[in-house]
Amino acid sequence: MSLLIEGRLSLEEKLLSNIPYPSSNELMNLAENGHLFNFLYDEPDIYTLEDGESI
């Protein structure tokens, strides 16, 4: 039983530790250099500046 408690406490410590959140610049850098959105280059341009109402 104590092994379960130790495991739970270890997991809680990892989850609740002070891990800093990434900054906006770090997230933008990851999006630009992570190649996650490269599939969008193959998508057709179906919208133009004349579509919809201007903001």
Rank of each mutant, 00 (worst) to 15 (best):
L36I: 15
N25A: 12
I5G: 01
A31L: 15
N38P: 05
E26A: 10
S23N: 10
E12R: 05
Y47F: 06
L9N: 05
D51L: 03
F39C: 06
E32Q: 14
S54H: 09
G7Y: 03
I46N: 11
K14I: 04
L16K: 09
K14D: 01
M28V: 13
H35L: 06
L16G: 06
L36M: 08
G52M: 01
D45Q: 14
E26F: 05
K14T: 04
P20G: 00
L49R: 03
E50R: 12
N18W: 15
S24R: 14
N33R: 15
E6L: 02
I5S: 04
P22F: 15
L3T: 10
L9W: 02
P22V: 13
L4R: 00
S24G: 12
E43P: 00
L15G: 05
E13F: 05
G7M: 06
L11S: 07
M28Q: 14
Y47P: 00
L15I: 13
L27W: 10
L49D: 08
D45R: 13
L40F: 15
K14V: 03
E13L: 06
D45A: 10
L4Q: 02
L49S: 07
E32G: 08
L11F: 06
Y47Q: 01
L3N: 13
E13Y: 04
N18P: 11
S24T: 14
N33E: 12
H35G: 09
E13D: 05
P20I: 05
Y47I: 01
M1V: 01
K14M: 02
L49Y: 09
E53Y: 01
L36V: 12
L40W: 14
P20S: 07
K14F: 00
E13M: 05
P22K: 10
H35Y: 05
F37T: 14
E53A: 04
E43Q: 05
M1K: 00
S54C: 04
L9A: 05
L40Q: 14
S54P: 09
T48K: 03
L27I: 12
D42W: 03
T48C: 01
S23C: 05
L27Q: 09
Y47E: 02
N38H: 03
N33S: 12
D45F: 13
L27V: 11
I55P: 04
S17K: 11
E13P: 01
S54V: 11
S23Q: 11
L16D: 09
Y41G: 12
S23P: 08
N38C: 02
M1N: 03
S17C: 10
M28P: 07
E26G: 09
M28Y: 14
G7Q: 08
S10K: 13
I5K: 04
I19R: 11
D42P: 00
E26K: 08
E50Y: 11
L16A: 06
S10Q: 15
G52K: 03
E32H: 13
D45H: 13
H35D: 07
N25R: 12
F39T: 03
D51W: 03
A31Q: 15
E32D: 09
Y47T: 01
M28A: 13
S23T: 15
L3Y: 13
E6M: 00
N25G: 11
